[in-house]
Design a protein around this nucleic acid. Structure first.
Lengths: 165, 165
DNA sequence: TTGGAGTGTCAACAAAGCTGACTTAACCTG
DNA sequence: CAGGTTAAGTCAGCTTTGTTGACACTCCAA
């Protein structure tokens, strides 16, 4: 399994190093979601609502099915979240013109206001972390995260990146 | 996408870059938990059990209170999980010798077997990601994650690292 | 034009968080 | 040693967010 590269590739993959990586991931993810969670709990929303709002903002007009695949939940689970967001006037669902089975999702102005509030908080933390760690670290950070994704998630990740730019 | 290097530290923190960081974190965390989740769902356990088992394995003899703080859940929530693990003979709870109010937690042999199974799966993915990204990337990865933690979580992260080494 | 496949919705249920109130036992301090 | 504090565990009840099953509407191709 462990191929001896030069000599260096060995030490750096000890179980201890890997465990530290696992724990870093666990603790960092807690920080990553902490700020939006604080905002959300003052309203009747949770993390699931945040995720839906984020990806609708990122790909306006996306279909329910597409969102399903990105979020990796069942459609019933997403539907509940989506229904409250639509009822509360944060998300608009338009019947597809080409295919009337599809619903295309958009944020309303109110929805965009909340999205900005949530993503401002999350970006602020990400910005602070990036700044503290420096540009080279950020490159490495992204490389490792990308290598950690399942391949279909990696595809989606790139698809969104291209659309978003 | 192609950033102008000359302006360095400024351009590199565009909202688009930050959003990509956020999404990378989201997709990668999914991959990070996918393998253990698959194993756990064949038994009657969930992610909460995995977390408890991981940190008991990492700090044998830890107290309930300590675990509570590390996991960031309520006593009632942890207790439910811990109770099933003790009943099933994966975790042992010993009354403290110095302070008899405390319970010290240990994995039984059976518990260690499951722990190894879960952590093997997770480490395999982490190892693959580290190997694919390279040593410098791993350094950056850890720097950014550490900067993203809340300060008290960062303290705990270091405390465990020292104990585990 | 009809039957199968795709998209979305509703209902009911389960896992795992949460709060609040309480008990028991042990420790510690005045 | 009495009284307050701390560690752990428990009971009840709620919320969020996941699940499966059944169903309706739409499209498309045989």
């Amino acid at each position: 399994m462990a191929e001896v590269k030069g000599g260096e590739a060995l030490l750096f993959l000890t179980d201890e190093q890997l465990r530290q990586g696992i724990e870093a991931m666990f603790f960092a993810y807690r920080g990553f979601t902490a700020d939006p969670d604080r905002i959300l709990e003052t309203m009747a929303y949770g993390r699931a609502h945040h995720r839906a709002i984020h990806f609708i903002a990122r790909s306006p007009g996306t279909t329910v099915n597409n969102l399903l695949a990105i979020l990796g939940v069942t459609k019933q689970s997403l539907n509940r979240v989506l229904r409250t967001l639509i009822e509360d006037g944060l998300v608009e669902s338009r019947v597809g013109t080409r295919d009337k089975r599809e619903r295309h999702l958009y944020l309303t102005e109110e929805g965009e206001t909340l999205e900005r509030k949530l993503s401002d908080a999350q970006r602020a933390r990400m910005r602070a972390a990036f700044r503290a760690a420096g540009p080279d670290a950020v490159t490495g950070f992204r490389q490792v995260l990308e290598a950690m994704m399942d391949s279909d998630m990696r595809r989606r990740y790139h698809a969104i990146r291209e659309a978003g730019t």
